[in-house]
Amino acid sequence: MSRRIFRIVILLAVALGIYLFIIKESHTKSFLIIISTLDFLLLSLGIHGLIAHSLRPKSKGELITFPLLMWVLWAVLFLVFVFFIIPIYCPDFLVDLKM
């Protein structure tokens, strides 16, 4: 049951990402960045939950590197989000920032 829930979460995140890509011209950059960040968090939650619940309980207890592997996966997903996904939604989102 939990794997099914995490698969639904992943599908919702992908659908939201496609929807945001289609309507990106009609919204402000700050709205797109906030919603795409929430979409990223939803996607990473689904992926982590699916992986965590796919491990057998016996191997999960003995796997001491499991938290480290989860962190590395999340870091890679975050770098893909920052350097590939946000520039697709907002190609010039840093241009208007005043420091």
Results as ranks from 00 to 15, higher is better:
S2K: 11
S2E: 11
R3H: 02
F6H: 13
V9N: 02
V9F: 06
V9P: 00
L12Y: 00
A13F: 04
A15C: 14
G17D: 10
I18K: 02
F21P: 00
I22Q: 09
K24N: 10
K24L: 01
S26K: 12
H27D: 02
H27P: 03
T28D: 09
T28P: 01
L32T: 09
I33G: 01
I34F: 07
I34M: 10
I34T: 10
I35T: 12
I35H: 07
L38F: 15
D39S: 11
F40N: 06
L42N: 12
L42S: 15
L45Y: 13
L45I: 13
H48M: 00
A52K: 07
S54K: 05
L55I: 11
K58Y: 14
K60D: 08
G61V: 09
E62R: 14
L63G: 04
L63A: 13
I64F: 06
T65Y: 14
T65I: 13
T65R: 08
F66L: 15
F66S: 09
P67H: 07
M70A: 15
W71T: 12
L73K: 03
L73W: 04
W74A: 10
W74V: 03
V76L: 14
L77R: 09
F78I: 11
V82Y: 05
V82R: 02
I85Q: 01
I86Q: 07
I86T: 09
P87E: 04
P87M: 08
I88D: 01
Y89L: 15
Y89A: 01
Y89S: 04
D92N: 14
L94C: 07
L97R: 03
K98I: 14
